[in-house]
Computed example of a mutant assay.
Amino acid sequence: MNFGTVVITAGLCGLLSFILLAVSIGTEYWYIIDVDEEKNSSLEYSSSHSGLWRIYEGPNGSFHDISFYSDTSNHTEQEKHLLNLHRVIVILFPLSLVLLVFGGIFGLVASLAQSYTLLSCIAAYFLICSVLTVSGVSIYISYSQQALEELQHMVSVESLAHVHMSFGWSLLMACLSFSLELFTGILLMLAANLTQRQCQHEPAAVFSMS
């Protein structure tokens, strides 16, 4: 595999990872609650899907924003803990998205310069971005599980018998973005090694010609 193919593939992977993460952040299908309305006659719960900032409920799609800066004096310690986790989540994902933009710019410069040092640094940069993204995914999964456990302590098991909860495709997009960020970093590291080998071969070729 030559240098050009590697860097073009890395660029496409980096661009796709940015698009997937942007779509993930901007959509509201991170967590889905599906209620069997025929069996759930109490109408205590309604089907909903939520994003990082909003929750959509009911068949008419009404929504309300998730407040992160409301008064927490009346909240329990567990509720405060969950709110803090959500605050971390909504910081990590946009931060990772912004870092991907700079990574794309610096990656293009490093590829044009064919610099081993620059390519190695950008490869490490993308690996750091992938760590931020997967950290956000992991914290969101942990947050959702803890929120479900808190809900189970508050209501009876029978009332949740016909309520199905699952992660949505928005979270899947974030996971795919993480995989592509990781793959981009690996490809850029490979491009850096190819550049180093080329630099080592050029003096040898000059020496043999002389």
Rank of each mutant, 00 (worst) to 15 (best):
S73C: 07
H64N: 13
V35D: 00
S41C: 01
H75C: 14
D36V: 03
L85T: 00
S70L: 13
G61C: 06
N84Q: 13
T72W: 12
E37Y: 07
T72Q: 14
E79L: 01
W30A: 01
S70C: 13
S41Y: 04
N60A: 09
D65E: 11
D71R: 12
G58V: 02
F68H: 12
G58E: 06
F63G: 02
E57I: 12
S48P: 00
V88R: 06
Q78G: 02
E44N: 06
P59V: 04
S73W: 02
D71H: 14
L85Y: 09
H64R: 13
D65K: 11
S48G: 03
S47Y: 05
G58K: 08
L85E: 13
L83G: 08
F68P: 02
I32N: 08
T27R: 13
R54N: 15
I33Q: 15
E28A: 08
S46E: 10
N74I: 03
E28Y: 12
R87H: 01
S70I: 00
K80D: 03
Y69T: 09
T27N: 14
Y45A: 08
S50Q: 04
L83N: 06
V35G: 05
G26K: 06
D36H: 05
S48C: 03
H81C: 00
S70K: 14
V88K: 04
N74F: 04
H64M: 05
L52N: 03
S62I: 11
W53S: 09
I66A: 04
H49Q: 06
Y56L: 05
V35I: 12
I55P: 01
S70M: 13
H81D: 07
N60D: 02
S42R: 08
Y31S: 10
E38Q: 06
N84E: 13
E77M: 11
E79M: 08
N84T: 11
K39R: 11
E57L: 11
K39Y: 07
N40F: 01
G26P: 06
E57C: 07
R54F: 12
R54T: 10
L85A: 03
V88W: 04
L43P: 07
F68C: 15
F63A: 14
F63W: 15
L85R: 10
R87A: 05
W30H: 12
N74A: 14
K39D: 02
N84M: 03
I32M: 08
W53I: 03
E28L: 01
S73P: 05
Y45G: 03
V88G: 00
Y56T: 08
K39M: 01
S41N: 11
H86M: 06
G51K: 09
H64A: 10
S73M: 15
S47K: 12
L43G: 09
K39L: 04
G26C: 07
K39F: 06
L82A: 05
S41Q: 12
Y29V: 05
D34K: 10
N74L: 07
N84P: 00
E57V: 12
Q78T: 05
S67F: 04
S46D: 05
G61Q: 12
W30M: 11
N40Y: 05
G51R: 04
E44M: 08
G26T: 02
N60F: 10
G26I: 06
T72C: 15
I66G: 05
R54W: 11
L43S: 13
L82T: 10
Y45K: 03
